[in-house]
Nucleic acid binder design. Structure first.
Lengths: 203, 203
DNA sequence: TAGACAAGCAAGCAATTGCTTGGTAGGATG
DNA sequence: CATCCTACCAAGCAATTGCTTGCTTGTCTA
């Protein structure tokens, strides 16, 4: 009956079944949406009975919160790595595109990031504010690379609107890209770079 | 107790309160999402009691269907008008951008189009198939203008992916654009055109 | 071997959900 | 005047919802 209130002792080992709940919630929230997913759905997908997820989470909202934070952390880490790899502007940009698309479309992280992108509005106000702050920090990296690209003459516009157009083009792929289709994520990143950059294409 | 099954006699006058239900549903579906909106919410917003909307619609799904079709018809008509206005490529393109963004962001049609963009997955399979067919026809107009732009050397890529990048950039605005902010819809359209086209900017 | 704790289960409760049912006010129609 | 039809209301039903409660199991430690 007791609960691991904030940090369970020896969280690494203890968080094993908890993460099963998060993964199940992530997949279902992406497939059916937050509001249309029931606790019973999540419990069953995690191999539990309907009351058991509440051992790990206080509310359903908390499950959404955990999913969204996981998505945000993963995409931030992946893109930050490429931004700081010390490559020239165009290569840095394309690597960041690839990393973002990989996170958003790849088997591994697509559930978390799709939920982040499409279900955040169902968060409670305080959790939403936290997520928005983290998202702003993430998007600042894109503003930074746009600035670099403009200095290099590779792009004409590094405004806030330009950043949002770019992120929109990327994030919208979650609604149409199909894994196993004719287009790999790498080629998609290359194609978006060519679509956006003002430079002779590199096929 | 009887219902106007398919076509109510003298539909023009009779469909008055019905359209109040559609407008209320559109606004609530956009604000809270389809699954999180209750019949009671819709009825109250339309000034009715909770059972009354079912005089006009068989199910809640049918209400979503009506909202989505309204959004699709409006944006299709607005953009088709500009595509066929007989202007030169760049002007045609920018006018289409403006028309789409006007529909998606403007007071008048944003409820319907935002629901179309973000809630279509909650449609029943048969209704979804119908909507997808109409959406494909809509997007074909964008493929067409991209082809024209490429012939004119204004864009480097007129592939299917390029079209989806463009639509993504536009449709994502529904998640960040705020009416009354510093950026008008007209300027937004101009800025997106400059972001995408390979030509000296026209400020 | 005894105790403690992590991690669940079985059962159910109060509220909410989509939707149905029988009725009815008010205008049009004969 | 009698009838019909449109558009709604008042009430409620069966199912589902998020969540709670008391209890059990397996495992680790002293």
């Amino acid at each position: 009956m007791k609960r691991p209130v904030d940090l369970p002792p020896s969280a690494a080992a203890a968080g094993n079944r908890r993460s099963a709940v998060v993964r199940a919630a992530g997949r279902l929230f992406r497939e059916k949406g937050y509001a249309a997913t029931t606790i019973r759905d999540i419990a069953q997908a995690a191999g539990m009975r309907s009351g058991s997820p509440f051992y790990h989470f206080r509310t359903k909202h908390d499950m959404l919160h955990a999913v969204v934070l996981e998505g945000l952390a993963a995409v931030h880490a992946a893109v930050a790595l490429e931004l700081n790899a010390g490559r020239p502007p165009r290569q840095t940009f394309e690597a960041m595109l690839r990393a973002h698309l990989q996170q958003v479309l790849g088997e591994e992280g697509r559930d978390f990031s799709a939920v982040l992108l499409h279900e955040s509005r169902h968060l409670e106000p305080s959790a939403l504010a936290e997520v928005i702050a983290l998202k702003d920090a993430y998007e600042a990296m894109w503003q930074k690379v746009l600035k670099i690209l403009k200095r290099a003459g590779l792009v004409a516009d590094d405004s806030k609107a330009a950043r949002l157009f770019l992120l929109g083009a990327m994030n919208w792929t979650t609604l149409w890209y199909r894994t196993g289709g004719p287009l790999s994520v790498e080629r998609l990143a290359r194609q978006l770079a060519n679509f956006v950059l003002r430079e002779p294409d590199k096929p």
